[in-house]
């Protein structure tokens, strides 16, 4: 397993796109978070400030999706899947190593983006005269750690989808569609029943409920439950991916 991890790690970092996409993830997360926070005034009344400050991850995740989809999709696109499986014929180990590597860089990018968002957000809030939340209180820590994990699960969901579809373009469209189109469509669904369900079980909405620090009883799912829903999506995608990757012709 060590060799697979090393090989996948080398593969990821020898592509120029990796560093660019990871910096884009961090930058988008911090930038959008700061922009939204900048619009907040003390007169707006009590707000869920950690959620506001960390909201940029909704946009930063897009480049993470691209990175994770390319990690598998490009192997099929450029046919390097052949040398990969010739060099490492144990397919589950390959998939596991790939997931571990992508998960690690997603968590790293998520940590950088989250910490930077919190610091920048605090500074922006302070300049607007809003009392910033303490960085170390329980709910804020949960929101921060949850955001990092959220990004990790999104990366795994993308990786699994790309393995199933064997095509980076299709996978990017599918994952971004599931993440983004569902909330857009939810606005216009006429059935309240379905609206609630979609809001409860749509991967992005559910996963991001981990960012909530206030008014938790009003949420359809508790923060950790919400993240667990997203984790279930990621696990489902990974499972189907593993079954197909093992049995299919390369």
């Amino acid at each position: 397993m060590r060799r697979e991890l090393r090989a996948e790690w080398t593969k990821l970092w020898t592509l120029p796109s990796t560093a660019r996409l990871l910096s884009a993830t961090c930058a988008l997360t911090v930038l959008v978070g700061a922009l939204v926070t900048a619009g907040t005034r003390a007169s707006d009344g009590p707000q869920d400030l950690p959620k506001l400050v960390l909201g940029g991850v909704q946009y930063g995740q897009a480049t993470m999706v691209v990175l994770a989809c390319l990690a598998v999709g490009a192997e099929y696109g450029t046919r390097t899947i052949v040398p990969t499986l010739v060099a490492m014929p144990w397919r589950l180990r390959v998939l596991l190593a790939k997931s571990a590597v992508v998960w690690c860089v997603a968590l790293a990018a998520g940590t950088v983006g989250t910490v930077a968002s919190l610091l920048v957000g605090r500074a922006v809030l302070a300049s607007n005269g809003v009392a910033a939340p303490a960085l170390t209180d329980g709910p804020t820590l949960r929101a921060a750690a949850g955001t990092v994990l959220y990004l990790g699960f999104v990366a795994l969901l993308s990786l699994g989808t790309a393995t199933v579809l064997r095509d980076s373009g299709g996978a990017i469209i599918t994952v971004l569609g599931v993440l983004y189109a569902v909330p857009i469509l939810t606005r216009l669904v006429s059935s309240d029943h379905w609206k609630r369900r979609l809001e409860k079980y749509a991967p992005m909405k559910a996963g991001l409920s981990v960012q909530a620090t206030k008014n938790l009883s009003a949420l359809p799912l508790s923060p950790w439950q919400g993240l667990a829903v997203l984790a279930a999506y990621a696990a489902g995608a990974a499972l189907i991916a593993a079954l197909l990757f093992r049995s299919r012709d390369a």
Partner: peptide, 27 residues
């Protein structure tokens, strides 16, 4: 590059609609 083209199109077509409900009305 298909991934780049697809991602950019989705970002400029879809994401504004999601951002729109989060940003102040003018923005």
């Amino acid at each position: 590059h298909s991934a780049a083209a697809i991602a950019v199109v989705l970002l400029i077509v879809l994401v504004p609609q999601i951002l729109a409900s989060a940003l102040p009305l003018g923005a």
